[in-house]
Design a protein around this nucleic acid. Sequence first.
DNA 1: AGATCTGTCTACCATATGGTAAGTGACCAA
DNA 2: TTGGTCACTTACCATATGGTAGACAGATCT
Lengths: 205, 205
Amino acid sequence: MPTSNGVADGNSTPARILDAALASFATRGYEATSLDALAAGLEVRKQTILYWFPSKEVLLDAVIDRSAAELSLALEGSLATAGTGWVRVEAVVRSVFRLAARQPELLGLVREMGRLGPPAATRFVAVLEPLVARASQFLEAEMDSGHMRRHEPRLLLLTIYSTVIGMLTEVELLRALGEEPTARSLVRRRAEILDLLRSALVTVP
Amino acid sequence: MPTSNGVADGNSTPARILDAALASFATRGYEATSLDALAAGLEVRKQTILYWFPSKEVLLDAVIDRSAAELSLALEGSLATAGTGWVRVEAVVRSVFRLAARQPELLGLVREMGRLGPPAATRFVAVLEPLVARASQFLEAEMDSGHMRRHEPRLLLLTIYSTVIGMLTEVELLRALGEEPTARSLVRRRAEILDLLRSALVTVP
DNA sequence: AGATCTGTCTACCATATGGTAAGTGACCAA
DNA sequence: TTGGTCACTTACCATATGGTAGACAGATCT
């Protein structure tokens, strides 16, 4: 039985396994990822994976937990930004894009969560739930004070979420639209999304 | 070798297979769908499936082709709507929601397309490519004539796409937000999305 | 030094999966 | 009647998959 906790800092074996699993789950999908393939990529035997994570599902849970924590941390940080309505929304969107540039797999996993029904998705949502509540309250307050156009806060959140995730993960469609997966394109997409959101949210005084 | 073409109208066996495959691909995903499970659901032996569709991949292609055609037809219909900028955008969004109410699996498959890289996604995108081009041109023209706020047409399209698909397929997240998958909720989501898009697109005169 | 623990490995295994080969009954044209 | 096609079936098979059991080398403890 492994002694070290799930945190597994540095380039320890469990951390490397988590990294590889995240990457594969996010791109190929959970079911399409085999422990053998994962192990081969790590130049390790499959049993090593099963030593640290007793089953594939446990591995998935570990990946979800770590990713959710990371995501949560990044969002918490940007939510701590002071400022009136739009500035804060912009800060959050920017931080998500920053995250996407540094760790695209993370956003890919988020996208995958929808497919894996409960209990995986439930676990993921549970961690982010407080953030959603905070964001929802924030939006509502901003609308009440007239800083933003009035919308249904939760559905507005879903819209922002969908748009950002779509912009960051719809690689196939992006390619079809002639948008290459470059850093420059990412910046352009960020500009566009901010432009759109501002149009939809900011009240013209 | 099957004689009838891929159209397979009515409740013929190949049509039933396509229906079941579409449903399963859209919800469980392609890799997670086994021919055995599919056959069991249809109360038919697996070989019957392989009789009509020589391999799983061929089945996927058939599902994609049929779905893309159906989607294309629906969109073509709504695009034929005459009218100035916003009215037409609204018509398209409404038709997609109508489609989602009647055939949720179709939208689910669209969502799955992103995951299945080439060649599956390519095939799908290829069919819808002309529509994308038309829509893009339409948006650009409307912006040129000042009926709509200026945005990057293709990225605007991606935004609309992401938002609509998200609103219609993010079941887990919707549940977490307290939005039940009812018809009433669907109407509310449609209203919200139209509201948002109007805010972002329509120029205040 | 000997015992124990840790991390990884080799050796298997039951099951599931996509796919091949060949058979069977119904129908139909000659 | 007979031969052939059609739709579908039973009988298999090679491979991949998640997982179990246990060996083995090195470090750590007593």
